[in-house]
Nucleic acid binder design. Structure first.
Length: 709
RNA sequence: GGGCACUUAGCUCAGGGGUAGAGCGUUUCCUCGACACGGAAAAGGCCGCAGGUUCAAAUCCUGCAGUGCCCACCA
């Protein structure tokens, strides 16, 4: 046989092996050999098509590929469906940053021009992402590769929207929403972050009542004062109007009693500014008719509106300083608590302060959808690994509020709703522009300029991508087997897929949810580009090979727990891959041209039995999703039992002509088991070695070999 | 204000009722025909603290202390 080099050459092997797999067609479940009746399906969480992959993606690619390769070897009909995400707002932000660097802005472009540029950009990124996934060894079915803006996906999203509207689960309403004045769009509750800040709390004289506020600049929008109904200090004023001195002169204002007010806080009296505070909005809603409608003080650009008189046009913080100064001059500022700590809502992307805004948006009533989603996990129809996340899942779904699914963005799926210019009613279609208004049959219709929250469409991924309701894949692979993703999108994505999939199909989208942790560097820091501590997956692959990276990402990684990766660790497993290479090299060298033994010695049988026991233990680990343990077990057996003990011992045994053939047989047998067990984790080196093994079928691949149970 | 997780070798982490494990690092020896990306050996741990259950606890339970994360409309 040909002399093999003493070190494994990952970079000249991997592409060749991947092509071999791809050529076989076995990534596609329909082309798998043998009778395969049991389906196994994973939908890849589509990576954002706005940037190359990072090491975090390598984690899920590895874990999912492990599951899929394992099940394929176990004889299942396996579908791993890849996709890429247009990632609406995220991509828009990325692209706007690019524009900024070029000295351009989307506000100097038409919407069509911007859309087509971003479209081109994401298509280019899709190619990069696909190439990277292949480099990582992903055995997914490229013939089913789906973009989140593909026709059938959008059609599904539109059908769902229409159904929701018809069934009264989606409604149009003017509500106080989280609004970022920098990005000029509303968000859902999940897209805002809370941060504890220290801000001055101002005590202001309001006629006979004092009140405390951190936002004196919104005073111009006060429509009432609220106190606790049982508060003796203020009882006399409840239901009455009091005259107060303000910066804009004298003003009459109503005092209402409501238990929402905490008499212990501040002075026990609150100004009610329904246009700019969620609590106040709720208060106004409860006391509608009794107190005037909300007055907008802050516009969408974050500047004060005309109702602020001389302060109009000022930005919030400028206005606050001026107002405080003037209140002081007028003797209306009683005192200031400089050390007041409170939670401030920030835009998760740019950290700008969220300005609640009164906007008309599409809202999804989530409670009716949450119920079945809770039930499915409670009853075990869908299991979450690790189990501790079930509690988190329940808590979120039990406390869920209506979901604002409108976004004031350009890049995304346009909302298929048209407003009649005559009667102001909305007509919703499944995508096509309606001929006339569904209410008054007027012809003057204008489409809502907003797009859907990306998560609204992503939430429909499982059944959209499998082509519900008539698709062959839907019938064969839904509900899917495992949803494997990071725990940080449990609410954003996983819970919403549960809700929307159950709503549309009546069935859960997946039987198991496996949540992995985030990747951190060796100092436990979260990896980020701005910190400069990211490990470039492609660079690592060049240096150490894909198998080494995959092993490093798998070993020591347990569900729900963050995982640490360092170059040292990757190098360590590169060494193991090389060890394996040399183990095989030794076995191949010592068994060249060997003949089948007449009988096996007791010792050889014992060794083979031990290997079978290892295979059994590994299988148990695999079934329980304990991948780290599984691969560590093989690692240990291959290195410290097979190499250190069995191969060393064989050096003597093989010199004995009577024992030689039996031992040769045993060594090949055990090596084959090791390669097969290790294949899901380190597919390239194992396949390459398997190809060098003497075997009956010339064309066969380790990828579809039977799992050694 | 709620919830969750973590605390194990110098570092980063697996494990999980019955002689403590991995990677990297450290020390000594070894160029012996699979492999120096290697081999042989070695040092290094009251498995956070305090109770409890048990024949037996690093492992289960309770409390405490630190750390991290998530949720939350405290003007």
């Amino acid at each position: 046989m040909k002399e093999l080099p003493t070190t494994y050459q990952a970079n000249t092997t991997e592409d060749r092996i991947y092509k071999l797999w791809a050529k076989s067609g076995f990534f596609n479940p329909d082309k798998l050999p043998g009778r395969r009746t049991k389906p196994f399906c994973i939908l890849m969480p589509p990576p954002n098509a706005n940037d190359p992959l990072h090491i975090g993606h390598a984690v899920f690619v590895t874990l999912q590929d492990i599951m899929v390769r394992y099940q394929r070897m176990r004889g299942k009909k396996t579908l791993w469906l890849p996709g890429e995400d247009h990632a609406g707002f995220e991509t828009q932000v990325v692209y706007e940053k690019k524009l900024e660097k070029q000295g351009r802005s989307r506000f100097g472009m038409t919407r069509e021009q911007f859309y087509s540029e971003v479209s081109e950009y994401t298509q280019a990124n899709r190619k990069t992402v696909r190439a990277q996934l292949q480099k990582l060894g992903a055995s997914c079915d490229w013939s089913r590769d789906t973009f989140t803006l593909d026709k059938h996906v959008i059609a599904t999203v539109y059908a769902t929207f229409k159904k929701l509207v018809e069934e009264g689960l989606v409604y149009r309403g003017e509500r106080l929403v989280n609004y970022c004045t920098k990005h000029q769009t509303a968000f859902s509750d999940l897209e805002i972050q809370h941060e504890t800040r220290k801000d001055p709390l101002y005590y202001i004289a309001y006629g006979p009542i004092q009140l405390a506020t951190v936002r004196p600049e919104t005073k111009f929008g006060d429509t009432a004062i609220a106190v606790h109904p049982a508060d003796k200090r203020y009882k006399q004023y409840i239901g009455k109007e009091i005259e107060v001195e303000t910066l804009l002169g004298k003003k009459k204002i109503k005092v209402v009693g409501d238990t929402m007010v905490d008499p212990e806080f501040g002075t026990g009296a609150v100004k009610v500014t329904p246009a700019h505070d969620a609590n106040d909005f709720e208060l106004w809603n409860k006391h509608k008719g009794e107190i005037p409608d909300p007055i907008r003080v802050i516009g969408k650009d974050g500047r004060l509106t005309d109702v602020a008189g001389p302060y109009a046009g000022l930005k919030v913080m400028e206005a606050r300083a001026r107002v405080v100064e003037d209140l002081k001059a007028k003797g209306l500022l009683v005192k200031t608590d400089e050390n007041y700590e409170h939670a401030l809502a920030l835009c998760y992307k740019c950290k700008s302060v969220i300005e609640p805004q009164l906007l008309e948006q599409w809202f999804l009533k989530t409670r009716p959808l949450a119920k079945p989603a809770i039930k499915a996990v409670k009853e075990g129809t869908t299991a979450i690994i690790p189990k501790s996340y079930e509690k988190t899942y329940f808590h979120w779904l039990k406390n869920i509020k209506d979901w604002n699914i409108s976004r004031q963005n350009w890049w995304g799926i346009e909302i298929p709703a048209w407003k009649c210019q005559d009667c102001e009613e909305w007509t919703v279609s499944e995508g096509k522009t309606p001929a006339s208004c569904s209410q008054c049959h007027g012809k003057r219709l204008e489409q809502d300029p907003d797009v859907f929250d990306t998560w609204f469409s992503s939430g429909q991924w499982p059944f959209a991508v499998l082509k519900f309701p008539q698709g062959k894949d839907y019938k064969e692979f839904y509900p899917t087997s495992v949803m494997e993703t990071a725990y940080d999108i449990l609410f954003f994505w996983v819970a919403r897929m549960m809700m929307l999939s159950l709503y549309r199909t009546g069935k859960v989208p997946f039987k198991t949810i496996y949540l992995h942790g985030l990747v951190r560097d060796k100092d436990r820091q979260k990896m980020s580009k701005s910190k400069g501590n990211v490990i470039d997956p492609l660079g690592v692959l060049e240096a150490y090979g894909t198998d080494a990276l995959r092993l490093a990402l798998t070993i020591g990684n347990s569900p729900g727990q963050d995982t640490v990766i360092s170059e040292d660790k990757i190098r360590g497993y590169r060494n193991f891959v090389n060890k394996l290479w040399n183990i095989a090299r030794f076995v191949l060298l010592e068994t060249e041209g060997c003949k089948p033994p007449k009988k096996l010695s007791l010792q050889d049988r014992k060794l083979m039995g031990e290997a079978a026991a290892v295979a059994e233990a590994v299988t148990r680990d695999m079934e329980l999703y304990r991948f780290s343990q599984a691969v560590e077990r093989i690692y240990h057996y291959a290195w410290h039992t097979f190499a250190d003990k069995i191969l060393e011992d064989s050096k003597k045994v093989l010199k004995d002509e009577k024992l030689k053939a039996g031992r040769q047989y045993a060594l090949l047998h055990i090596l084959k088991i090791i390669l097969a067990l290790l294949h899901p984790f380190a597919p390239f080196v194992t396949e390459e070695l398997y190809q060098k093994l003497p075997r009956a079928k010339k064309q066969s691949l380790l990828m579809i070999e039977k799992w050694p149970v």
